[in-house]
Design a protein around this nucleic acid. Structure first.
Length: 551
RNA sequence: GGGCCCGUAGCCUAGCUAGGAUAAGGCGGCAGCCUCCUAAGCUGCAGAUCGCGGGUUCGAAUCCCGCCGGGCCCGCCA
């Protein structure tokens, strides 16, 4: 078990209290607030109660160094063995530091943008939240599969297919080319009634399995997806599988959903198939099949989730908040069918200063444009570095992608964001490059130490000062924070955590010189530097950000 | 009209699920720090009636009610 969690368990055992009375604190390593609750029952002051119950504590492990009572709080402080074990386990475990063995199979579905154009800055909020969860779940020892659910059957896709048929594709990046046709046909449809009829006819033929239609859809959607995949790859995001929703209309799952709903007497099967949603608290019916025989998004999604139920114990979707209503309806229907609903991470929209984005109207900043501009800006910054061209490009790329990923993963998903170029192109404090820079500095110290022949690391508790103590204590919380993310599905917690480490290390860096100190102190501090280097590198990896050794 | 989410210094964000110790950072502003391991860094100063009004409580940024402002949704779209 990794350090902080071991310490925490010891405190929990000693106090015998519930988790909600134990908290992280700036005043203590772990603070216990149970005296406040008991004070109420016993009609005594919290301070007195705390002093009383302290008598009953039975300390069994080696990690609790000191207990203090202050203002009713019972403050626990870790001791010598805790810090020694923390440093040594980080140095020993290296790449494996922070690994957990939670086990289980989890499916994480994320991004799943309509294949009608390139990803824009709203979509990548989804991708980055999703991919960071995937990485953190894997570190937690969970067997994770990531999927991109391809909406190939929607009206939007049919519009794109028809648009490409009508106007053709240019030579640019394929997703952008598909968007061009998609935007144009949407504009044309405003004045040309026949386009909507053609789209509808195309949808009927596609769902019916018409060979030409299938070929056209495959071709256009694969083109769009090629571009999307390329963008995701640049962002260090890769899906294990792409699942086409049309599959569920052909493999019998949609039919099974209809039958299951009928068995529960929920399906009204007339010219349209619909479910009366009143008993679930919704005003309007949910339509599952149109008059023309084609299915709707939620129908295929129900089928997809039936499949998820059969194949995974836990499945998580990352969705924009515009999906809240339909996702709740989906969940209620699944529950009515005795199926498990997905766990859902909703995120609020990323808008532009001038308003919300729309692929259809061509009103968006593409992820590709954002990546390119950020790259150029990062490239400018390192122009005067003594690197060759190849390394300059490599570093600028890592810095740019890091900046993007961090900006999105850092803020709580329920917080609406307004996209801001100035912020996106900022590489100073509270950014990924600050963390990367901190990591590079740690690497630099280690490099210099090796060059000077100082290869021994030896942490000594007696030499540890207050800055070092704070830093090491943070390092010990790595897997504790992983666990928090697994339980809360909030990757922003982890981003804040890594940033915190970088800030504490900067503090250490400026106050405690390493290379020049006498040998005992040097070996002690080198151990701390190397431990921090390892934790920052492992942490950046989980954020999908490259841990550069020089920049 | 109904539902969900957000509202913390000029700007951005943490804390809110499990109420408690002076509300924590960053940007911007001002004043400083490179004969010293990368100044993408560091130090100091100024800046907040935690949207507003009630309520619960010994104690509320955090819980409850009402309101205001912003976003999203309410299609045989996704």
């Amino acid at each position: 078990m990794v350090m902080f969690r071991a310490f925490y368990s010891e405190v929990k055992r000693a106090t015998g209290v519930d988790d909600r009375f134990l908290r992280e604190s700036e005043h203590a390593d772990i603070a216990c607030t149970v005296a406040f609750k008991l004070a109420k029952e016993k009609r005594k002051k919290p301070q007195e109660v705390a002093e009383e119950i302290l008598e009953d504590f039975e300390i069994t492990g080696d990690y609790i160094g000191r207990i203090e009572i202050e203002n009713g709080y019972i403050n626990f402080f870790a001791g010598q063995e805790f810090f020694e074990d923390t440093v040594n386990s980080i140095l020993d475990d290296d790449f494996r530091y922070g690994d957990m063995k939670l086990g289980g199979d989890v499916l994480i579905e994320h991004t799943s943008a309509n294949p009608d154009g390139p990803l824009h800055v709203g979509h990548i909020r989804n991708s980055i939240i999703g991919d960071t969860l995937v990485r953190i779940f894997r570190k937690a020892g969970i067997n994770v599969k990531s999927q991109y659910y391809v909406n190939d059957m929607g009206r939007q896709s049919a519009m794109a297919v028809l648009g490409v048929k009508k106007y053709g594709l240019g030579a640019g990046k394929p997703d952008h080319e598909v968007a061009r046709a998609y935007i144009k046909i949407n504009a044309d449809a405003e004045s040309d009634e026949s386009i909507n009829r053609q789209v509808e006819e195309l949808m009927v033929r596609y769902e019916g399995g018409d060979e030409n239609a299938v070929r056209d859809f495959r071709e256009v959607i694969e083109k769009a997806l090629d571009g999307v995949r390329e963008t995701l790859k640049k962002l260090n995001v890769e899906h294990d599988e792409y699942i086409w929703e049309s599959e569920f209309t052909r493999n019998g799952y949609v039919e099974r959903i209809f039958r299951m709903l009928e068995e529960k007497e929920l399906l009204d099967r007339n010219d349209v198939f619909k479910v009366n949603m009143k008993k679930f608290g919704y005003d309007k019916d949910v339509i599952l099949r149109r008059e023309n025989g084609t299915t709707l998004y939620i129908t295929r999604d129900l089928a997809y989730h039936l499949w998820k139920n059969e194949n995974y114990g836990r499945f998580i979707n990352v969705l924009g908040s515009d999906h809240k209503l339909i996702a709740n309806q989906l969940s209620d229907l699944l529950k009515a069918l005795d199926l498990k609903p997905p766990e859902i991470v909703f995120f609020e929209f990323v808008s532009l200063p001038e308003g919300s984005m729309s692929t259809r109207k061509g009103k968006f900043i593409s992820a590709d444009e954002l990546i390119e501009k950020t790259f150029q800006e990062a490239r400018k910054l390192i122009e005067d570095r003594n690197f060759d061209e190849g390394e300059k490009n490599r570093v600028a790329k890592a810095v740019a992608i890091g900046a993007l990923r961090f900006d999105f993963v850092r803020v709580s998903p329920e917080k609406p964001m307004t996209f801001d170029w100035e912020k996106a192109l900022d590489f100073e404090r509270q950014t990924a490059s600050y963390i990367q820079y901190t990591h590079a500095r740690a690497c630099s110290i280690m490099r210099k130490a090796v060059e000077a022949g100082y290869v021994d690391l030896d942490f000594k508790y007696e030499l540890m000062d207050d800055v070092e103590r704070k830093l090491l204590f943070l390092l010990s919380k790595f897997s504790f924070n992983i666990q928090k993310v697994v339980e809360s599905l909030r990757p922003s917690i982890f981003a804040e955590y890594i940033l915190d480490i970088a800030e504490k290390f900067s503090d250490f860096y400026h106050r405690n010189p390493v290379i020049t100190e006498n040998s005992e102190l040097r070996m002690h501090r080198l151990a701390i530097v190397d431990a921090t280097r390892i934790v920052l590198r492992n942490g950046l990896e989980l954020l999908g950000i490259e841990a550069l050794e020089r920049m």
